[in-house]
């Protein structure tokens, strides 16, 4: 991923030449810190699972129960990310563009899923969405069970991933030039054309970034899901809960292997997020 700025290559050369000069105290501290906090746990996980050998690893990683938990985790998280991609964009839009009483409170509330212990979130959601809960009772007559089903997992994931997309989008929306919209009108564009051709395209990268962030957060979610799901294999058991169950059974290799799979997928996702962000900056001010 390189930007098409004509001056990017000389600066790269400069970086290479100045590598040895870049070793400074902050650099050293950063590297040691990252090694301890980030690299060491990941390495330990990978080393542990590598000790099983490729065949053993593959066998444990692809047991039917493991596959089903990947399915539940990734597909439900993706659905939650996509729903928030639309709804979170709307929330961010309203928070930036509309004036209404209590806006500050609503704005602060968006961060609640960041701060609330996930166990509390799970407890509240499970109560609300159970057959007799405030929300769940309206769905029960139609035979729709939310809590203790895959739908419940989805609800919990939507809850915890919402702030990611809203907070990613808000600053971008704030920076949108109103004059660009006026320019589009003066050129004859309707509201609809102005939205799709002028406002929306610059929002695509942050929306994608927000979806990816929300998705990876949902993949990693444990506390709220374990409470709102029935945790039955092949139904609504997610991979992080399976890891915990394997640990409880002293099946360390299985826990490690499933953990390594989750880790690899998350790493790949975060890489994609980074690439998306770079792509989003391709026409940004330098």
């Amino acid at each position: 991923m390189t930007t098409n700025l004509p001056f990017s290559s000389p600066s790269k050369q400069l970086n290479r030449f100045s590598f040895w000069q870049s070793i400074s105290i902050p650099w050293v501290v950063t590297i040691i810190y990252l090694l301890l906090i980030l690299v060491l746990p990941i390495a330990a996980l990978l080393v542990k699972s590598a000790s099983l050998g490729l065949e053993g690893f593959w066998q444990i990683a692809t047991t039917p129960i493991a596959i089903s938990t990947y399915n539940v985790t990734f597909i439900t998280a993706l659905a939650a990310g996509l729903v928030n991609g639309v709804m979170g964009t709307l929330v961010a839009w309203v928070l930036v563009r509309c004036q209404f009483p209590g806006k500050k409170i609503v704005d602060a509330m968006v961060d609640l899923p960041f701060a609330l212990p996930t166990s509390v979130a799970g407890l509240v959601l499970a109560t609300l969405y159970s057959q007799t809960g405030w929300v769940g009772r309206f769905f029960a007559p139609f035979g729709i069970q939310i809590a203790f089903s895959r739908l419940g997992v989805f609800v919990a994931m939507v809850f915890i991933s919402l702030p990611f997309i809203v907070r990613t989008l808000q600053p971008v929306l704030q920076e949108l030039e109103e004059e660009a919209e006026e320019a589009a009108w003066s050129l004859g564009a309707t509201e609809f054309q102005t939205f799709w051709r002028v406002i929306f395209p610059p929002l695509i990268p942050p929306i994608l970034t927000g979806i990816a962030l929300g998705f990876s957060r949902a993949v990693g979610e444990y506390g709220s899901v374990v409470l709102i799901a029935s945790n039955i294999p092949f139904k609504d058991l997610i991979a992080p809960v399976l890891v915990f169950e394997r640990l409880e059974q002293y099946d360390y290799p299985a826990a490690t292997v499933i953990g390594a799979v989750l880790l690899s997928v998350s790493l790949i996702l975060l890489l994609i997020i980074n690439l998306l962000q770079q792509w989003g900056r391709r026409y940004a001010n330098d």
Binding site: E179, A180, E182, A183, A184, S186, A284
Partner: peptide, 20 residues
């Protein structure tokens, strides 16, 4: 409506479409 007036408007801060 501005869209039907057939005017050209130039803004102080250019207001170009950055993604185009």
């Amino acid at each position: 409506d501005i869209r039907k007036r057939n005017i050209g408007f130039v803004f102080q801060h250019y207001a170009l479409f950055k993604h185009l």
